[in-house]
Simulated scan of single mutants.
Amino acid sequence: MAHQAWSWILAAVGITGLWLAGSGRRAGWAIGIASQALWLAYAVATSQWGFLASVAGYGAVHVRNWRRWRATEHAPPAP
């Protein structure tokens, strides 16, 4: 039953982060990046080591996209 709770928590956190990021909210990126710690804990707790690759991959993509979003947010307006 504990595995079921993990699934729902991870889904809720991930969807919340994506929703907020897609709405242009900085908190979305922070949640997406921080959620990788939850995935890391899940991978270790359940001995599902393949999730470690997704933690690295999703974490890198979240950071990349946040940096790109931040660069466009702070870019000077076009003439």
Score class of each variant (00 low, 15 high):
A21E: 03
P77L: 01
A11H: 12
T46Q: 13
R26C: 01
I9R: 11
P77T: 00
W6H: 07
T46M: 13
V44D: 02
R64G: 04
A34Y: 07
A75E: 05
Q4R: 05
V55G: 04
S54Q: 13
T16L: 14
G59R: 04
A12V: 12
S54L: 15
A5Y: 13
A37D: 02
W49E: 02
A43F: 05
A21L: 06
G24N: 10
P79S: 01
L38P: 06
V13C: 11
V55C: 03
A60W: 10
A53I: 12
S47R: 12
F51R: 08
W8I: 07
V44Y: 09
P76D: 11
A78D: 00
G17N: 03
A5V: 14
S47K: 12
H62M: 10
S54N: 13
A12D: 09
V63W: 08
Q4H: 12
A5H: 11
P79F: 00
G57C: 12
S47G: 07
A71I: 08
W66C: 06
W69G: 09
L10D: 08
R25T: 01
I33S: 04
L40P: 11
V61Y: 11
A43C: 10
A60L: 14
G57L: 15
A34V: 11
A78E: 00
A30E: 11
W6M: 05
W8D: 10
T16I: 10
F51S: 03
A5M: 11
W8E: 13
A41T: 05
W69I: 11
R70T: 14
W29S: 01
A2N: 01
W69L: 12
S35R: 03
P77E: 00
A34I: 05
A78C: 00
A71R: 15
H62Y: 10
A56M: 09
Y58R: 08
A34N: 05
T16N: 06
A11L: 15
A5Q: 12
R68A: 14
W29C: 00
H3T: 06
W69T: 11
W29E: 01
I31E: 07
A41P: 06
A2Q: 02
G32R: 02
V55R: 06
N65G: 06
I33T: 12
L10K: 09
V61L: 14
M1H: 02
G24F: 06
I15Y: 07
N65D: 12
V13M: 11
A34Q: 08
Q4F: 09
H62E: 05
A12C: 08
A75H: 03
W66A: 15
G17V: 02
M1L: 02
S47C: 03
G59K: 04
A11E: 09
L10H: 05
G57N: 04
T72M: 14
V55N: 06
W19P: 01
A78I: 00
R26V: 08
R68C: 06
L40M: 05
A56F: 10
A27L: 12
A60C: 09
T72N: 09
W6R: 03
T46N: 11
L20I: 07
A43V: 04
L40Q: 05
A45R: 10
L52G: 02
V13R: 13
V44Q: 04
L20W: 09
V13D: 13
